[in-house]
Amino acid sequence: MSSSSWLLLSLVAVTAAQSTIEEQAKTFLDKFNHEAEDLFYQSSLASWNYNTNITEENVQNMNNAGDKWSAFLKEQSTLAQMYPLQEIQNLTVKLQLQALQQNGSSVLSEDKSKRLNTILNTMSTIYSTGKVCNPDNPQECLLLEPGLNEIMANSLDYNERLWAWESWRSEVGKQLRPLYEEYVVLKNEMARANHYEDYGDYWRGDYEVNGVDGYDYSRGQLIEDVEHTFEEIKPLYEHLHAYVRAKLMNAYPSYISPIGCLPAHLLGDMWGRFWTNLYSLTVPFGQKPNIDVTDAMVDQAWDAQRIFKEAEKFFVSVGLPNMTQGFWENSMLTDPGNVQKAVCHPTAWDLGKGDFRILMCTKVTMDDFLTAHHEMGHIQYDMAYAAQPFLLRNGANEGFHEAVGEIMSLSAATPKHLKSIGLLSPDFQEDNETEINFLLKQALTIVGTLPFTYMLEKWRWMVFKGEIPKDQWMKKWWEMKREIVGVVEPVPHDETYCDPASLFHVSNDYSF
């Protein structure tokens, strides 16, 4: 037999072997998808029940369902290793196997995995149920939502704001400190077992692309791009910072340095994350009609249902689908009040099986009107990829998912749209002054938050990498806050605090 014939037969044999492996992989994935749908849905439903009704029974049910899901994933991840990716030609099959071969938290021992889940659930519970009591009246206690958040959004009393700011960190942050220390250790162990340098590197892996249509993007490039983007917006932020400082000097004349940092408790919310609520103090042309339409919403008797129905109309107007019937029947759109304790931070849920929901303790404000559009943007994205195989139902990356939500809320905030839905009067006219007011309001929300987020994530990356010793977490946190964000702590904090974890995203294990 000629050498060319042998070569042809060899190629046929290799192709047949690849085809056999690929067919086996497809069969394996079909079985996995069928089983995963049910187990993931049960786990998601148990998590939803806990988040909307925080009880010991629900946390136990959530843990049990989560353990079943984790055990299943660990088993299936091991089985998926049997299919070598280099022998799979079908890109859809390869991407699913690649996702499943990534072990995630299931790489930890059973004891450590359970401990990590306990830590995460405990931190979430402390954050959502933590109360601050009035020292003069111990029976008068406030949760973060709505009590403390209400103070931080609306109060102009310097000392009341300081009390709310400090009490939240003292009551909740200190409880979270030992848990967060354990969390860092276990998450790093999980990341390294998955061949990442640390948990920050694991997060950045979400943005990594290897040879898809000839395109590559590394975790290191992400760090470079983040640094570059921050340097680009820094001059604009510094101008905004100086303008806000001048306006705060008028409101709090004896508390603000004309050349120094801004006190952290005066920036519009509990964390200084969004400066939106400073608009009334900083509006350049106050004689113009108010483009913050909160009062109009209240006057027109809007409620949470109306807010979300208007958001749905907005999405339908640009060619996107209505929310499902189940969305309206199962979402929690208002604070249950004293009936039950719930996690009030707005979140969009894709539970699986076409079950999409939003959890939000909606208030009738323009801020929540825009947040509703943001969260519904997440749901629209979830619905758009719902037909994909189970392992591919995700956003391109976390940042893109947020961008989908944010672009919709930005569009909904324009005076033209607000006028079209009757929240600005029919005779409202846009001119240079109203446009400047609008742009300032947008800058308070968007530009003001960028250094906050950059600095927070930089601190977390450094902590996970071990570049900040545990006994210097708070020292470095406030050094970076002053240097990068231009914000100063109103009272000193020692290493018993854990100020970063006083933010939902940190205590609940979300990256930005």
Rank of each mutant, 00 (worst) to 15 (best):
D67T: 13
I54A: 07
T27F: 15
Q76M: 15
A46R: 03
F28G: 00
H34G: 05
E22W: 02
Q76R: 15
T27E: 01
V59L: 13
N61Y: 11
I21Y: 04
W69M: 06
Q102E: 12
I54C: 06
Y41R: 15
P84C: 04
N33M: 04
Q102Y: 05
M62L: 08
N51I: 06
Q24M: 03
E75Q: 15
K74F: 08
A65T: 05
N64M: 10
L39T: 12
E23D: 12
E37R: 01
N49M: 09
A71M: 07
D67G: 07
E56G: 05
N51H: 09
E75D: 14
Q60T: 03
M82N: 10
L29K: 00
V93T: 13
Q89H: 13
D30C: 01
N90P: 15
L91S: 14
A25H: 00
Q89V: 12
D38L: 01
Y83H: 05
I54E: 07
Q96I: 03
Q102S: 09
N61T: 12
P84E: 07
D30Q: 03
Y50T: 03
Y83Q: 00
L91C: 14
L79A: 08
E56F: 06
W48C: 01
A25N: 00
E22S: 04
N63V: 12
V93A: 05
I21T: 10
L79N: 05
Q76T: 15
D67Q: 09
I54M: 07
W69N: 12
K68G: 05
P84F: 04
N63W: 11
A25C: 05
A46Y: 06
E35N: 06
Y83G: 01
N63D: 12
L45G: 00
Y41D: 01
T27R: 12
K31Q: 02
N51P: 01
N49R: 01
Q24F: 00
L79E: 01
Q60A: 12
N61E: 13
I21S: 04
N61H: 11
L45N: 01
Q89G: 14
M62F: 06
L39K: 15
M62W: 09
E75I: 14
D67C: 11
A65N: 05
L39A: 14
Q42C: 15
Q76K: 14
P84I: 01
V59H: 11
L39I: 14
E57P: 04
Q60N: 11
K74L: 10
Q42F: 02
Q76F: 15
E57M: 04
Q76S: 13
D67M: 13
D38S: 01
K31P: 00
Q76A: 13
E75T: 15
F40T: 05
M62D: 02
L45M: 09
E35Q: 12
A46V: 03
S19A: 10
M62H: 04
F72K: 14
H34W: 07
A25P: 01
N33F: 01
A71V: 10
S19Y: 14
N90T: 15
K26I: 15
K26N: 11
T27M: 15
L79R: 14
A65R: 14
S19H: 08
N61Q: 14
I21C: 03
Q24L: 03
D30H: 01
L29E: 06
Y41L: 03
P84L: 05
N49A: 14
D38Y: 00
Q102N: 11
A65M: 11
N90D: 15
L91D: 13
D30Y: 02
N63G: 07
S19I: 14
W69G: 06
D67Y: 13
M62R: 09
Q102R: 06
N61M: 13
Q96M: 05
N33P: 00
P84K: 05
F28W: 04
E37A: 03
L39D: 03
Q24P: 08
T27D: 15
E37G: 02
E35V: 15
T20K: 04
F28P: 02
T20H: 04
N61C: 13
N49H: 05
E35M: 14
Y50V: 03
S19Q: 03
E37N: 01
W48M: 00
H34P: 15
E75Y: 14
Q42S: 04
Q24H: 03
N90R: 15
N64I: 13
Q89K: 14
Q98I: 13
T20L: 04
Q76N: 02
W48R: 03
V59G: 11
D30I: 15
V93N: 02
V93D: 03
P84D: 11
A25Y: 02
L39F: 12
D30E: 15
E23P: 07
N64S: 11
N90S: 15
Q24S: 01
N33D: 15
E22N: 02
Y41H: 03
Q98L: 13
F40V: 07
S19M: 06
W48V: 00
E56Y: 08
Q42L: 15
K74I: 06
N61G: 12
D38N: 03
K31S: 01
K68P: 01
Q24K: 02
Q42W: 00
Y50E: 04
I54N: 05
N51T: 03
L29M: 03
F40R: 15
N33H: 14
K26H: 07
T92A: 15
F28S: 02
Q98K: 10
F28E: 00
A71D: 09
E37D: 02
A71E: 10
E75W: 15
E37H: 01
F72Y: 15
N90V: 15
E35P: 01
T92P: 15
N51C: 07
Q96L: 04
N61D: 12
W48F: 00
H34C: 03
E35W: 04
T20V: 05
E75G: 15
L29A: 02
E23Y: 08
Q96G: 03
P84R: 05
M62G: 03
F40E: 14
N90M: 15
E23R: 12
L95S: 07
W48G: 00
I21E: 04
L45V: 03
Y50W: 11
L95H: 08
K74T: 10
E37S: 01
L45I: 12
Y83I: 06
E35G: 09
Q24A: 01
L91W: 14
K74M: 08
N51W: 07
D38I: 01
N51S: 04
N49L: 04
E22A: 03
I54Y: 06
I54P: 09
Y41E: 01
F28A: 01
S19W: 14
S19G: 03
Q24C: 02
E57G: 07
M82Y: 08
F40I: 05
Q98F: 05
N49G: 06
P84M: 04
F72P: 00
